[in-house]
Amino acid sequence: MSMADVFKMAGVGIVGAVLAVMLRKERPDLALLVSVATGVILFVWLLLEIRPVMRALEGIAGSMEGSADFFSVALKVTGIALIAQFAAQVCKDAGEEAIAQKIELGGKVIMLGMTVPLLLNMVQLILQFLPQS
């Protein structure tokens, strides 16, 4: 993520916003699509930037014997949160608060479903340390 990238991102974002506003009066639907396209381009761009960091973290987590699967679940949960947040934000931009709430709720439910097994074996781990009364 070089210094120049932040200026590029700012530039792309501002141009996208201006184009969206320009279209809003005549064609509100196309304006929404312009803002979604800008959002997606910026998102994909920063995902490509963060990929090596994630691989490095995965390497570090893999080296520690216990925490490999914990970290992979954390990674998955982050991905789900990002997607749910993105979709909910698009719906909010379109003025559909109700749909946005449902998407966020769905994301939370999926994340909860993924972390329950983790919780279970963490509790077992703790119970091992406690003296058997």
């Binding site: 997606v40 490509l48 994630m54 992979s72 991905g79 997607i83």
Partner: peptide
Amino acid sequence: TTLAGLVIVLLMVINLISDLFASVKDVFNL
């Protein structure tokens, strides 16, 4: 013409979003 324009733009945006989901799956190995 309005409908045609909307369909074209929708197709382009849907391609963009499928690329986004592919790269998210790749980065977070979902």
